[in-house]
């Protein structure tokens, strides 16, 4: 009866002086792997035109219905190389579950999930992110 009690005490004392797993979060950040699914970004092509061509696959595949997309024509090929771009591209971060299906579904690698994970904002309306917010900054 005494043996297990002492064994328990020895385990806890080893943990008391052992390494700690705490990350002091605001001061040190968690190590993020490249495949981490964080905030979305709408990629631009190498020529600076948008890759997204309004196929709507991401909206269709999204299990949380977080994506709303509406397209328009771009007849002079100013912003797109196929003549169609998304006029509205909204992701509702109140609904998004960061499953990454939109990235998998996208045939042109236009939408990509980045490693950025600090997504808290001070009002709920800011969680509805529009196209301007999501488009890659160059």
């Amino acid at each position: 009866m005494i043996g297990p009690l002492i064994k328990g005490l020895s385990i806890t004392i080893r943990h008391l002086f052992g390494p700690k797993v705490t990350i002091k979060y605001p001061y040190e950040k968690r190590k993020v792997y490249p495949r981490w699914r964080g905030k979305h970004v709408l990629k631009l092509g190498e020529d600076g035109r948008e890759r997204c061509c309004y196929c709507g696959l991401c909206e269709a595949v999204c299990p949380a219905n977080a994506i709303r997309i509406y397209g328009k024509e771009d007849p002079i090929f100013e912003k797109s190389d196929v003549g169609k771009i998304a006029e509205i591209y909204e992701i509702d971060y109140r609904r998004c579950i960061f499953c990454g299906y939109c990235q998998e579904a996208c045939p042109r690698d236009a939408i990509v999930l980045t490693t950025e994970y600090e997504l808290a904002v001070d009002s709920r309306s800011k969680l509805l992110r529009d196209k301007e917010d999501l488009t890659e900054k160059r």
């Binding site: 004392i13 943990h15 008391l16 002086f17 052992g18 390494p19 700690k20 797993v21 705490t22």
Partner: peptide, 9 residues
């Protein structure tokens, strides 16, 4: 002590 034993700080 509680933190240390539970591997916290």
């Amino acid at each position: 002590v509680a933190g240390g034993i539970q591997d916290r700080i």
